[in-house]
Design a protein around this nucleic acid. Structure first.
Length: 259
DNA sequence: ATGCCGACTAATAGTCGA
């Protein structure tokens, strides 16, 4: 089973790009972020006509996540537990029923800039809630993954110019520490399980000719529970997607699981 | 130090992203 996470930066603006990508790459499951649409306005039929089941968790204008799957989706939940007052649509879960059941969590972790400030406080608080949910997933001892736009640059090698990010919410020591605290519970960063070293990015800013200069960062990640990591057959970044017409500023990141 | 670019909502500018 091939699963991709993809921050599409607006489903309405990216619909042709998304449809062409689904036709071309035929993911079994696609985990989308920044749909920037309320559920009622999501262009469902385009997706469903390609044979996908679809679950969305949207809001007006910003954020919003979705899971697409050629297999049935069960036990769908929306919203990250731990704060009933949080109205931002950044978390969705569903179980994909295949040879083995797989719990899939799609996430759009807050950006947090400017830091320090209330937005950074929200990011760190959100990561605390994520850690609690992550611990519960591990306790279940079942195949599960958390994938999406983490807005975290884990290490210096994950940025073309790490020195440009030292005061940024994506790379501050406290951000990276919070990310490590989650990983160190027992998750596998699927991409780093198979590929080491610098030069692997999932985001290039639209500005300042970042793509042409390969000035990127790796901020879209798959974290796998041990039972899911047992099934890992490969992980890769679909860098070519950034060079196509009307690209998102992110590219798809993939895993293949023996499932 | 700021804008760069792009999408969104609202409206012909302002907000947000990373």
């Amino acid at each position: 089973m091939r699963i991709a996470t993809y921050n599409i930066n607006g489903v309405k603006a990216r619909l042709e790009t998304l449809e062409a990508w689904l036709r071309r790459e035929t993911p079994d499951v696609a985990i989308l972020q920044e749909i920037k649409s309320v559920d009622e306005a999501f262009p469902r039929s385009v997706i469903e006509d390609l044979g996908y089941n679809l679950e969305t968790h949207g809001q007006k204008g910003f954020n919003g996540v979705a899971i697409l799957s050629k297999h049935p989706l069960e036990d769908v939940t929306r919203g990250l537990p731990g704060d009933d007052s949080d109205e931002q649509a950044r978390w969705i879960e569903a179980t994909v029923v295949g040879k083995t059941a797989l719990r899939i969590c799609g996430l759009y972790l807050p950006n947090g800039n400017p830091a320090p400030g209330p937005k950074y406080d929200y990011k760190l608080a959100w990561m605390q809630r994520l850690q609690a949910r992550a611990a519960a997933l591990l306790a279940a001892e079942e195949p599960a993954l958390m994938a999406g736009d983490y807005n975290v640059i884990p290490q210096a090698e994950d940025a073309r110019h790490p020195e440009d990010w030292v005061e940024d919410a994506l790379y501050l020591p406290q951000t990276r520490e919070a990310f490590r605290s989650i990983v160190n519970l027992g998750f596998t960063d699927a991409f780093r399980a198979g590929t080491q070293g610098a030069g692997h990015y999932s985001f290039w800013d639209y500005q300042a000719r970042s793509w042409e200069r390969d000035n990127g960062i790796r901020i879209d990640h798959f974290l796998l529970t041990p039972q899911c990591a047992d099934l890992l057959q490969g992980a890769w970044i679909e860098k070519e997607a950034r060079a196509l017409d009307k690209p998102s500023d992110h590219v798809p990141v993939w895993v293949e699981l023996d499932i």
